[in-house]
Simulated scan of single mutants.
Amino acid sequence: MFDKAGLSDAAHYPYELGWIFVEERFRRMGMAGALTTCLVHGLEEWPVYASSRTNNKGMHKALVNAGFRQVGQHYPGRRTGEEFQVFLKPAG
Rank of each mutant, 00 (worst) to 15 (best):
H41G: 00
G72C: 10
F68Y: 10
K4C: 11
A34G: 06
R79A: 10
V86M: 10
T54H: 05
A10D: 04
E24H: 15
F87T: 06
H60W: 06
E45A: 15
P14G: 12
K57I: 13
L7T: 05
A50L: 09
S52Q: 01
L88F: 02
P47Y: 01
N56C: 03
T54P: 04
F87V: 03
S52H: 01
L63G: 00
V48Q: 01
A62C: 10
S51F: 08
V71S: 08
G42E: 00
A50D: 05
M59P: 06
I20R: 02
A50Q: 07
E23N: 09
T54M: 07
S8M: 11
L17N: 04
Y75L: 06
E82Q: 04
L39E: 03
L35P: 06
G6A: 12
I20Q: 05
T37W: 01
V64N: 09
G58T: 07
S8R: 14
S51Q: 14
W46S: 13
E83A: 03
C38G: 09
A5H: 04
F87D: 03
S52R: 00
D9I: 04
A66M: 07
R79G: 07
A10Y: 01
E83T: 13
R79L: 12
P90F: 09
G33H: 01
N65G: 13
L43M: 13
G42T: 05
V22N: 04
E23H: 12
F2P: 07
G81E: 11
G92Y: 04
K61S: 10
E83W: 15
S52I: 04
K57N: 01
M29K: 10
V86T: 13
E24F: 06
G42P: 00
N55Y: 08
K57A: 10
T37A: 15
N65A: 15
P90A: 15
V22M: 02
A62H: 04
A34H: 08
R28C: 07
R27G: 03
T37M: 10
K57W: 07
S51C: 08
V40A: 03
C38E: 15
R28T: 09
W46D: 12
L63F: 07
V86D: 03
W46Y: 15
A62E: 00
I20Y: 05
G81K: 10
F21K: 00
G42V: 03
V86E: 00
K4V: 05
K89G: 05
Q73C: 12
A50M: 06
A32P: 02
T80V: 11
V64S: 12
V40L: 08
R78C: 05
E23P: 01
E82M: 09
E44L: 04
D3S: 00
F2I: 08
N65Y: 07
A32F: 06
G18P: 00
E82S: 01
M1C: 11
E24Q: 13
H74E: 14
K89F: 10
D3Q: 07
G42I: 02
E16M: 12
L35F: 06
P47K: 04
A34E: 14
D9Y: 08
W46N: 11
M59N: 12
M31C: 12
A11Q: 08
A11G: 14
V40D: 03
P90E: 15
F84H: 11
G18T: 09
H74I: 10
Y49W: 15
G30C: 08
W19F: 05
E16S: 10
V48K: 01
K4Y: 03
H41S: 11
G81H: 11
Y49I: 02
E45Q: 14
G18F: 04
Y13L: 09
T54C: 14
F87G: 05
L43E: 09
